[in-house]
Structures are given as C-alpha cells and as structure tokens.
C-alpha cells in the first residue's frame, strides 16, 4: 500500500505543479478588483454577508439558541392568534437551513415575484402583500360612503409592477382611488373632454394635483414618491374629496 501511496503522491505532484497556463500576476489584478467590489458591496449593505449569496453564518454555539427562540416565537404567535397570517412589510421572507458544510444559513428571498394578473375580492393586507409599495388608505370618507366596505383590486403587469384600486360605491355615490407604481420614465397624455374644467390644487402641503371636473364626475391626479395616484368620484363634493385625499395614510 505504501508503494501505491507514493505513486499517487508523485503523480499528483506532477499534475499540480506542472505549468497550468494561468498568469498569477493577471489573476492577482482580478483578485484585487474582486476584493474591492466586495468591500464596496459590504459597505453599501452595511453587513458582513458574503457577496451575492446573502448568507449569514452564525457561530456554532448560537445555532440552538436561534432555533429555540424562533420556535418559541412561532408557537406563541400561533397560539395567541391562529386566524391571522402575517405578511412581511418589506417583503422579506426568511427561513433557516443548513448548507452542505453543515453551516447554519438564513436564506432570504427579496421581493418574490407575483404572477401577472388581476386579483380581486381581496383584503387590504392581501393587497399590501401583492403590491411592492406602501398602500395609502382613506382615513376619512364622505358621510354617504362612511359605512361602505371597499372593493379592492390589484393588477400586476408583466414587469412585476402593480396598481391597486379601492372602489367605494353606494347608490349614486361613487369613489375610486387608484395607486400605481411609476418607477419607469413614461409619457402619458390625458384626454380632456369638452366642457371639462381643469385646475391645479396643492395637497399634502406641497404636492400639486391636477383636477378635472365635469357635471358627472371629479378626477384628481397627482404623484408622490414615484407612486401615481388618481381619485375619481361621482356625487361627492369637491371639498369632501380634498379631505379624503388629505387623509390618505399608509395603514387601513
């Protein structure tokens, strides 16, 4: 067996020490660049995680503590409120597992893709989970719509961007608020029919909104933080509608 060991050793030496056709100096340059990039990424992310993989390695001693704490929290939440399914506000889903080297790894999927399509008859929490931005909900409603539950619809397009509509309808009164991500640059023309009064108002202290008014409806359009908003209403006073806009907040 020693002869075989020697044979293996000699041949491995010949294989590994033979010229391999790579220039170490050249590779050193690419190593330095890669290292600089990783440093920048770490600074940007403010973590000590590995580049690209988003792995957080945890010292061996803490493994069980983390798992135990996680189980206790999960169990307690389930026991206290078994009906509620909570969504992560920042769309970060986490789970704990082990890699092939038996290291504990917390994996993260950010902004999981929602299949394109129309989602109707859903709750505010479900709409919030589908939309990748903070939804605004009217905390003030005109008296005629005060007790009305909204119909919520979400449309997710092929690029993963979503638009969310809250519709409040009761008799002749109608109020529809649409919120849409406007992250990409685009040009949009709004057709202004005859006999339409066009004006501009200031809302939320410094945001300009365009108002289109006809005998039948009132239409407000404005943009805030890359989200496009549109409020259309029928049978409701303009002043009441401005109150609705001013009371749009991120929680239902």
């Amino acid at each position: 067996m020693k002869k075989l060991d020697k044979l293996i050793s000699e041949n491995l030496q010949a294989l590994i020490e033979a010229p391999c056709g790579v220039d170490p100096e050249e590779k050193w340059q690419s190593f330095k660049e890669k290292y600089q990039t990783e440093l920048l990424v770490r600074e940007k992310e403010g973590t000590d995680t590995e580049l690209e993989r988003e792995k957080i390695r945890i010292p061996f001693g803490l493994k069980f503590a983390y798992i135990a704490a996680g189980l206790v929290v999960a169990f307690t939440c389930c026991m206290m409120n078994p009906q509620v399914v909570s969504a992560f506000r920042d769309q970060v889903f986490k789970w704990v597992g082990q890699n092939q080297e038996n290291e504990l790894v917390i994996s993260q999927i950010r902004n999981p893709v929602t299949p394109p399509g129309d989602y109707g008859g859903i709750s505010f929490a479900e709409a919030q989970a589908l939309a990748l931005f903070d939804l605004q909900y009217p905390h003030y409603l005109p008296e005629s719509l005060a007790a009305v539950e909204p119909q919520i619809n979400v449309n997710v397009n092929e690029d993963g961007y979503s638009s969310v509509t809250f519709s409040f309808i009761k008799g002749e009164a109608y109020l529809k608020i649409t919120q849409r991500q406007d992250v990409l640059q685009s040009n949009k023309n709004t057709f202004v029919p005859q006999d339409t009064e066009v004006s501009e108002i200031t809302i939320h202290n410094n945001v300009k909104a365009v108002v289109l008014e006809t005998e039948d409806y009132t239409d407000f359009q404005w943009q805030e933080k890359n989200i496009g908003y549109r409020l259309m209403a029928r049978g409701i006073d303009r002043e009441e509608l401005i109150k609705v806009i001013e009371e749009l907040k991120t929680e239902a």
Binding site: L15, I16, P19, C20, P24, W28, K32
Partner: peptide
C-alpha cells in the same frame, strides 16, 4: 496586502490546478 500578494503568487497556480483536478 503586499505580503498577501507574495503568498497569492506562490500558491495560486497550485490551488487553481487542485480545483481544476476536481
């Protein structure tokens, strides 16, 4: 970094060949 460069230049080809073998 300079000291590490010397180690790198010495061992990179062997480490590369080891990986290539696998």
């Amino acid at each position: 970094m300079e000291a590490f460069r010397l180690l790198y230049l010495k061992y990179y080809p062997k480490v590369y060949s080891t990986c290539f073998l696998i």
